[in-house]
Write a protein that binds this DNA or RNA. Sequence first.
DNA 1: CTGAAAGCGCTAACAA
DNA 2: TTGTTAGCGCTTTCAG
Lengths: 327, 327
Amino acid sequence: MITIKDIAERAGVSYATVSRALNNRSDVSSETRKLIMELASEMGYQPNAIARSLVKRKSMNIALIVPDVSNPFFADITMAVNSAAENAGYTTMVCNTGWDQQKEQEKLRIMVEQRVDGIILKPTGFFKPETLEAYNVPIVVFWHAGDDDLSYIEVDHETGSRMAVQHLVDRGYKHIAYIGGQETSPSNQIRLLAYQQTLQENGLVVDPKLISFGGFRLESGYERFGKMMHLPKPPDAVFCSNDIIALGVLQYTREHNIRVPQDFGIIGFDDINYASLPQIELSTVSQPRDKLGEEALLALIREMEAFPERTRQRVLIAPELKVRSTT
Amino acid sequence: MITIKDIAERAGVSYATVSRALNNRSDVSSETRKLIMELASEMGYQPNAIARSLVKRKSMNIALIVPDVSNPFFADITMAVNSAAENAGYTTMVCNTGWDQQKEQEKLRIMVEQRVDGIILKPTGFFKPETLEAYNVPIVVFWHAGDDDLSYIEVDHETGSRMAVQHLVDRGYKHIAYIGGQETSPSNQIRLLAYQQTLQENGLVVDPKLISFGGFRLESGYERFGKMMHLPKPPDAVFCSNDIIALGVLQYTREHNIRVPQDFGIIGFDDINYASLPQIELSTVSQPRDKLGEEALLALIREMEAFPERTRQRVLIAPELKVRSTT
DNA sequence: CTGAAAGCGCTAACAA
DNA sequence: TTGTTAGCGCTTTCAG
């Protein structure tokens, strides 16, 4: 690999001058600059970003740490962060934690060792903010804001849930169920609360029998919904905590010839990519991934600029209602 | 950020000794090692990978350059490469080209500047092998092997297509159509040829009317299939060049009450994630992404070890037949 | 406008 | 077993 010294030698100048020319700084005569530029491209010079990072103490790399890039949701986020970072002149290192807390710590460590200028993290589960602060690196977390010093970003689950339930009410459904995810999941709690409040605000009763918690999986949705339909007073619509659960419900209605949306309304949350397939056409609340990714990067840039001060940002992204043929 | 010099000072030894201890080399007394280790963790020392890379002339980073990580197929490849790389001690930098040739070149350049130890590239389209060789970096390409010096990896499209068509024949379908992608796509050509040969080997006639080229999109599949069904002698089964096209066909059969698989067989190619959804259950030929990713990394490691010699590997991955409910 | 020199944080001879 | 020293390839003062 050829270096600025090689160029300097051929050009008969000091390598400091080569460096100046290559970074097109003003204090080089135009002739020398021209000569150096030509030589550089002729010799196939490729600047060494590692050496530059070392002296500049800035790598122009950022890290994105997510549980699983092959999950369409995170894949979209990755894309969005990537392109936003690119526009800002940064290169992204993407890490998977595989929903493993320990791996998450390891990835964080590796990224710090790589001296990335900042980190965007979607934590695998609960985490101690102190741990992250200890890494002493600009960081933005996809999570509900705590009262610590970190910067957070997330979609506005409350607004999203209200939109979903209000939409069902507006469509004329009266007996609306909630099929949620893990009871311990904080976002699940937020969604549940919004569901209850929206019903009450519309003068509808909240029936505890129509509230269910369980796995965020298709089978789980199918099964729990099936039980609900055997209730003396079954629901006529359901708000599902995510699209996968909704897919399970949809399957049940198909198999039992329940007419959707005439006799029954279904709405999900997330807008995963196949929700819009012609065979599915699921109404849902979209978490705009492009926006999330973009805003996460902007927040990170602000954080990096202020570092080592923490900016303590709390960014909330507005969800979007996607009305399709299941409501 | 604290450095080995800081530790050396506190420990009262030279910083070379600290380096030795931290890399647990044998030539350090166990007491000094212990002292240094304790000091390091107490002071929160994080090794600087950039400095190490500079002197070692090895970054332990590799690049994965793909058209679009949010495409489920590439997302899976990304996962597989990522985890294989991780096991081998490498960190992966993922780049998107957005199906843009120019961006592809730019990403390659940036990765070379970042001094990655090797690159895995899924090219956006046709490319000049010389360009890649000129970058003078170990590289493995997802593509059909040419007669150049590069290393290639791909799924065995011929075998895969034969499996698909033979499966339709075995199921008793007699009048099998081929709905392909872009006529210019090389993999499309390979699939077509295998389709024709398999039919002939089974004593079935190849009807040019039952062969169609077009976009790799759902609507394209829907439309072209619709036309075929209006032929005097319509097909009783179809081999689609990818799953998206098959989804279009599936939609058509649904809308026109064609019984699948009793009266009509459909098979796709790729095994994209929603092919296995209960609502879809598409038979298809799977390109095993985990295997592709894994083998790509192994090939790259061989390439890196041999570098600057080129290993000129040609790796072919066996596809897998997934029989589901559309055949 | 250009060169000399220091140094980013680390590894790896070579001595001692 | 440890210290000294010379870089890795580059940027950035500070002189000239």
